[in-house]
Amino acid sequence: QDYPKTHLKVVGSISVLPPYKDYELPFWTKHLAAKSNGAITADAKGFNEMGLKGPEVLRLMGQGVMQIGATVMGYLAADDPATEAVDMAGLVTDVETSRKITEASKPMYDKLFMAKFGVKLLGFGTYPAQVLYCNAEIKGLADIKGKKVRVAGRSQSELVAALGGTPVTMAFGEVVPAMQNKTVDCGITGTLSGNIAKWNEVSTHLLGLPLSWGQIAYAVNAKAWEGLDPKVRALIAAEIKTLEKDVWDAAGYHTQQGYDCNGGLDSCKLGTKGKMKVVMASDADKALLRKTIVEVTLPKWAARCSAECVKDFNETIGKAVDVVAKK
């Protein structure tokens, strides 16, 4: 098939992390070119390389400042609480279910993005599981009680508070010295990215219980999308599935690699071997988490989201994980 010469301007997710480095960048700049006999070219950059923090990406995309963009769903909570739903802290504790609910949430978010920002959703990637790193002994989730935990965003904050911990917010770069000096006892970040950012050097225990994921939304300005040749649109819409598959497969592998590396196992390939005690979650931990979400954080979230948003949640994400939010 022949494609018209098309040049895409792409803003990807955080440039130093695997989803962008290993998958998005080659997808936009090489994979599409190969599939279109060189007709589709692109230049890509991570939003952080442009000095952006993520929450502003959808707004800028809507204003036409960016054509194709990516941002982390959890960063968008300020502009609409519905964006919290897919990455509600503690809701999903394995990558397969996360993949399932993310897939299920697509109609809900496509509608939301278009209505609020004039942006079309193309697909979702994800970061590996985010777990609890502590510079203190923890045997299970209940041990969060009384601990100072560095959180990112409202959803994690509410979960930690509900479990009896003190949520502390600070810049990502301040976490390592703060954990070392025990200004905070714990922090939540990716199993592998925590290893890459050396959190394992300043903490002793890791709780093997995913609390957040960090889904990455790939989206495009609606007008720019309409301006593309239909054949190009069809190709991108079809091929983005391979990007999604690659990123999600990697997330599963990277989550396990993060445990292996932090725990110092020989199977560690992608990080540096640490000396952390990896405490795998028990059934009691999972039960406590479920109870906390159903009784505390989900109702709180439902209270700040619109009736339509709660309905959408129940029909998509809620159905997939068997919880019901009440307005």
Binding site: Y75, A78, D79, D80, K116, R154, S157, E158
Partner: peptide, 22 residues
């Protein structure tokens, strides 16, 4: 001004427990 207007139109609340109307 676009930033303020955007936050007003979206009813944006800061992404924290504070939920400050931005």
């Amino acid at each position: 001004w676009e930033v303020v207007a955007g936050s007003w139109n979206l009813g944006a609340l800061s992404n924290s427990q504070l939920k400050m109307p931005l």
